[in-house]
Amino acid sequence: MTVTVERDDNIKIIAMDGQLDVSSSDATREEVIKLLDGKPTIISLEKVSYVSSSGLRALLMIAKTAKARKIKIIYAAAIDEVVDVLQMTGFIKMLRCVKTVDDAIAELS
């Protein structure tokens, strides 16, 4: 899993790329949380090909941390297979999830 900051002005866009599974979730969670600096943040899941339960926990912990720090956070552009797991577990309505990064930018602008 790689984590890249794709934009960092009035909005921060963090892109994840890879599988969010048991081997990568803890490190990814820590890396993303370190990047939360107060700006409204979009986390692009466009290139995340797989999310297991440990990956879901990472997404939840990132969102909980952001909420505690009063940082607005939106997950964007998850592929259908990932959306399926998010739906099954209720994460899709618990987290703020939108279809595209552009939708997220529009919401935060």
């Binding site: 339960s53 926990r57 912990m61 909980k64 797991v85 099954m88 577990t89 209720g90 618990m94």
Partner: peptide, 24 residues
């Protein structure tokens, strides 16, 4: 003890694995 209707503050981090495979 996964409650899929819980909000982010109420939602715990445990139990997701068994919830997933028993649901699927």
């Amino acid at each position: 003890e996964v409650d899929i209707d819980a909000d982010i503050d109420e939602r715990g981090i445990g139990g997701l694995g068994i919830f997933l495979y028993t649901t699927m």
